[in-house]
């Protein structure tokens, strides 16, 4: 983990947004009194199911959507001010670009928008294209790029200003496993360079692997904010035991397990509750003439907390 200072980079306080949709202007609350802060140098994950309000929150932070109430600041500057984005790189969800431009032309255009020096941009653009794995295709028109390649272009433009804060909305969306790994590595390298990263994601194992802190949004509200080790205590959730043996002989074991799944290759998978006796269960397997193929303890993970919160309708 990189060093995290106490300086607040992003501050979101009581943010609210309601959209009016359709002919009857039906009100839909997208974000309800959301509050959290991101400290300098940390990787902060914004997680939640579809429609949780993550993208709306990030768009309010980038000044694309005006909040109905509350405040959002970046480096202490109100997010509605263009100056707040001077040191910020942003990757929108499923980015769209001018498809008639080449990747290097697009980055040159965005360098102009950041007010970058021409010589600095000229040096930095090929470096960035290399960094996101597009060094060989920088001179190709974007219309010839796959979805994954466009996502990489999106990453490159987010890193263009050598930003102190990088905000990524679903950066792994549309990427294959290698692409996901590359994005993970880029985010980690940003932390090593002392940058702050705020990103939203559905891919919880990645969030678990690289985030210092997370905010969990459900139904427009922030349900939980905290360090991963505070949210996920790592306690034993259950123990999985895979057994091979005669189905009739093993029939009595089901009563000892919380769940039993018969598998096609003649194996049976048992889930034991944390309080169940593992020794007793293994003894019972051997007594029934079965053989134990594997024993795997399952500890509580971010996904468990996520599913629990997503299933709960309202905040306590």
């Amino acid at each position: 983990m990189g060093s995290v200072s106490a300086e607040t980079v992003v501050e979101i306080s009581g943010l609210e947004k309601t959209f009016r949709i359709g002919f009857w202007r039906k009100q839909v609350a997208a974000v309800r009194h959301a509050s959290f802060s991101v400290q300098r140098g940390e990787i902060f994950g914004l997680i939640g199911p579809n429609g949780a309000g993550k993208t709306t929150t990030l768009k309010m932070l980038m000044g694309l959507i005006k909040p109905d109430a509350g405040s959002a600041t970046i480096f202490g500057i109100d997010a509605s001010q263009a100056a707040s984005r001077a040191k910020v790189g942003f990757l929108p969800e499923t980015p769209h670009f001018y498809d008639y431009l080449r990747a290097d032309e697009l980055l040159t255009y965005f360098a102009h928008l950041y007010g970058m020096d021409g010589k600095v941009a000229e040096r930095r653009i090929p470096e960035l294209l290399d960094r996101v794995g597009l060094g060989q295709v920088g001179d190709k028109q974007l219309r010839k790029f796959s979805k994954g390649m466009l996502q990489r272009v999106g990453l490159a433009q987010a890193l263009l200003p050598d930003a102190e804060l990088v905000i990524l909305d679903e950066p792994q969306s549309g990427l294959d496993p290698m692409g996901r790994r590359d994005v993970r590595q880029i985010i980690e390298s940003l932390r090593d360079e002392g940058k702050t990263v705020l990103f939203s994601s559905h891919i919880l194992p990645d969030v678990e692997q690289i985030c210092d802190r997370v905010a969990m949004m459900v139904g427009g509200t922030v349900r939980k904010v905290g360090r991963l080790d505070e949210l996920v205590d790592g306690s034993l959730r259950d123990v999985e035991v895979v057994v091979r043996g005669d189905e009739a002989g093993l029939a009595g074991l089901a009563a000892l397990a919380s769940r039993t799944t018969r598998e096609p290759l003649g194996t049976t998978r048992y889930l034991l509750a944390p309080e169940a006796s593992l020794d007793g269960f293994l003894q019972a397997v051997l007594t029934a003439g079965g053989s134990v193929l594997s024993v795997a303890p399952h500890r509580q993970r971010l996904e468990d907390i996520f599913l629990l919160e997503a299933a709960r309708k309202e905040a306590p």
């Binding site: 768009k59 980038m62 000044g63 694309l64 263009a82 100056a83 707040s84 984005r85 001077a86 910020v88 942003f90 929108p92 499923t94 980015p95 769209h96 670009f97 001018y98 965005f110 928008l113 950041y114 007010g115 999106g154 433009q157």
Partner: peptide, 17 residues
């Protein structure tokens, strides 16, 4: 419509610009 605007307006430029 094409959402190219998000990439432009998220830069440090005023909407008037």
């Amino acid at each position: 419509e094409r959402k190219t605007l998000y990439n432009v307006l998220s830069k440090p430029i005023d909407r008037a610009t």
